[in-house]
Each structure stands twice: as structure tokens, then as C-alpha cells.
Nucleic acid binder design. Structure first.
Length: 363
DNA sequence: AAAGCGTGGCC
DNA sequence: TGGCCAAGCTT
């Protein structure tokens, strides 16, 4: 039988948002937007880049730190890429940081320091794709662009019981979102969809009884909301193994080097190590170290899970005299500098395994 | 167009 | 505890 539902009305969602909008550091509340307050496109852009595949709670401190240090896009354009990478360390997906800097440079050089005001114009910039261009244009300028992110995919796949698995269903869902998006308050509508997806229409155990679209939801009418969105099966995660060498000078300095600009952890800092070999049973020992020393292996390897593989990293450490020169293009990072280096989380784990407390600011 | 690209929290 | 998940983009 066909459950009876009414069409979802944007006005109902907006009324819910007026009462339940989350307060977020980068957000202009609906009451202020109604009173004519315009969001700063720079803040909108910065937050949207940080929020790509990243939780709100993770982003907040990074957003505050970036905004305090670089209050305008011109400030960010004036900053060395190195400083931006260091400030981004720990947030993941490091090509975002490189593109962030490239985007700021482009806005300053080609657009006089002002972001393009249309989704089409924004779409041309580095690191800004279909979602982000639509989101910035909607939030900053109320352009009625179809904003489709993971939240929207989940909400609409449930409302309309879209049986096509993602990512194949993207076009279908974009068309639905384009139909639904109101010509007024497009920015609030986009943010309302995200809040709905984040707070009520959650992946597990959605709070349908509180949802402004409860009576419009086909999946809920059938009791099948948790079955959406359907997703294509993902490939399993292969194993890789490698060795990392933490050289510790008597004064506490640690030997570091820079990774290649592109690829995994591109442009970030690391401790010297071997290649990470897929399916390896045994990995290299001290013969792969960057310098000769009395290398000792730490008992427990570091386990780190990346998006597309799981890494087991054997950690070796050695003590060296203060006078020991840094080999090749490596350098000695003092204990005072270490917390400010562009170290991704896996490298902080490796250093912590050999020298507990080294990467945190202590004392 | 499918694969590559981080991390931390949650159950 | 291991799999899943989070405001995607690039090539």
C-alpha cells in the first residue's frame, strides 16, 4: 500500500530553523539575517572548507584560531604557505590547506580581494566544488543554489525514499533539492537542511517525532527511514606496514623532514621513515634509518587508520649528541618548536611513542 | 569515473 | 573494538 504523505514545504523547515538553529561561530543567526545582517563571505568560505568531511566540534577551535590569526582573506594571502600548513596540522585532508592558501591568493590577485558573489564564479576557485560553491553563494548572498551535502542526501533520500544507491543518486537528489529550494531565504534554507540532518535526521535513530517534515517523509511513513540513504558497497581497507625513526638529540631536539608536496600528507612534516608497503609481513629495521646510531625498537607499533588503508608503523628511536648534523634536507626541531611544526596526527603518534610528551606544549 | 585523500568520535 | 561516520574536491 502507498503511505499517505503531504509534500515537504520549505516554509515548515524555515519555521523550525527560526526556533532551533544551532549557534555556530561562523553563522549569522536567522533573526539577524532577517534584520538585514550580511555574513562575511570570508568566514563562510573558511568554515565551509574546514567542514568538508569534518565534524563541527573538530572544526570550531581551528576556525577560531584561523580567524584570530588571519582576520581577512588579504591576511591569509599574505601568510606563508608554511604557516597555513602548520595551523592546519591535525585537521586532515591537507590538500584543503594548500587549496585554501591558493584560493586566498587568487581572490586577492584576480578579484581585488573580494570573493565572487555567484556560485558559478566561486566554482572556479581552488578547493571549491559543486557543494561549496552553492553553499557559499546561498549563505553569503541568498542565491537559490541547490546545496547538496551529506546531510541533504540523507534527508531527501528519506523524504522521497530514493532507492538508488549513492553516489549514483546524486543527480536525482540534486534535482529534488533544486525543486525544493525557495527563492527567498535560500541561505537559511540551506543551513536549516544541514541542521536538520545533523540534529534530527541523523544516520542512526533519527528523531522523527520532532521533525518539521515528519508528515512529508515517505520513508518514515513506511518505517524504513534508517534504510536510507542507500549506499554502494565500499572497498575494504588494505594493510600497509612501515618503520619510522625518531632521532632524539641530548637537548631534546628531534629530526624531521618534509614530505613531497602532493599525495598522502602532502607538504606536511614527518620523522624519517621507510616506504609503507602494502601487505608486508616484515618491515625494514635500522638499515633504512637516515643515519647510523644505536637504534632501539619501541615495543608497541603505532596503528593508524587512513581513509583507504590501515598502517602499522614500527617505531625506532636513538639518542644522538647535540653536535650531530642533520642529514640531507632534514632538520633538528627543538622541543620548543616541535608543537608548532606541521605534523599530521600519525607523526605526532610516532614521536609520542618514542618520546612521550614531546609534541605537546608542557611546563 | 573511480580512486586518493585524515582524523577523531561513537556504539 | 572495528566499522561507520562527518558541511567533498581533485585527477
Amino acid at each position: 500500500m502507498i503511505p499517505s504523505v503531504s509534500p515537504p514545504r520549505p516554509a515548515d523547515l524555515l519555521a523550525w530553523y527560526d526556533r532551533h538553529a544551532r549557534r555556530l561561530p561562523w553563522r549569522t543567526p536567522p533573526a539577524e539575517r532577517r534584520a538585514g545582517v550580511k555574513p562575511d563571505p570570508y568566514r563562510v568560505w573558511l568554515s565551509e572548507i574546514m567542514l568538508q568531511q569534518t565534524n563541527v566540534t573538530t572544526v570550531k577551535p581551528y576556525f577560531e584560531a584561523f580567524l584570530a590569526r588571519w582576520p581577512t582573506v588579504a591576511d591569509l594571502a599574505a601568510a606563508p604557505t608554511e604557516d597555513v600548513m602548520k595551523a592546519w596540522a591535525g585537521l586532515g585532508y591537507y590538500s584543503r590547506a594548500r587549496n585554501l592558501k591558493a584560493c586566498a591568493d587568487t581572490v586577492l590577485r584576480d578579484h581585488g580581494g573580494r570573493f565572487p558573489e555567484t556560485s558559478a564564479g566561486l566554482r572556479e576557485l581552488p578547493g571549491i566544488g559543486a557543494y561549496t560553491s552553492a553553499a557559499i553563494a546561498a549563505i553569503a548572498h541568498d542565491e537559490p543554489a541547490a546545496v547538496v551535502d551529506g546531510n541533504v542526501e540523507r534527508v531527501l533520500s528519506r523524504i522521497f525514499a530514493v532507492d538508488t544507491p549513492l553516489p549514483g543518486a546524486k543527480k536525482e537528489i540534486s534535482a529534488l533539492q533544486a525543486q525544493l529550494t525557495p527563492s527567498k531565504r535560500a541561505g537559511d534554507y540551506a543551513q536549516a537542511m544541514m541542521d536538520l540532518g545533523a540534529t534530527l535526521c541523523t544516520p542512526k535513530r533519527p528523531a522523527c517525532s520532532l521533525c518539521p517534515w515528519e508528515t512529508a517523509c515517505v520513508a518514515h511513513a513506511r518505517g524504513t527511514e534508517e534504510l536510507y540513504p542507500r549506499k554502494a558497497q565500499k572497498a575494504d581497507r588494505p594493510e600497509r606496514a612501515g618503520a619510522a625513526f625518531v632521532a632524539i638529540r641530548a637537548d631534546g631536539a628531534i629530526l624531521l623532514r618534509k614530505r613531497p608536496e602532493r599525495g598522502l600528507l602532502g607538504g606536511m612534516t614527518e620523522v624519517p621513515g621507510s616506504d609503507w608497503i602494502q601487505g608486508a609481513k616484515t618491515v625494514q629495521g635500522p638499515e633504512a634509518a637516515p643515519l647510523a646510531a644505536d637504534w632501539q625498537r619501541v615495543a608497541a607499533p603505532v596503528i593508524h587508520v587512513f581513509t583507504h588503508f590501515r598502517l602499522t608503523l614500527d617505531i625506532w628511536h636513538a639518542r644522538l649528541p647535540d653536535t650531530h648534523p642533520a642529514p640531507g634536507d632534514a632538520w633538528w626541531a627543538s622541543s620548543a618548536d616541535l608543537p608548532h611544526e606541521a605534523l599530521p596526527s600519525v607523526m605526532k603518534k610516532a614521536i609520542e611513542a618514542a618520546a612521550p610528551g614531546a609534541t605537546c606544549k608542557r611546563k
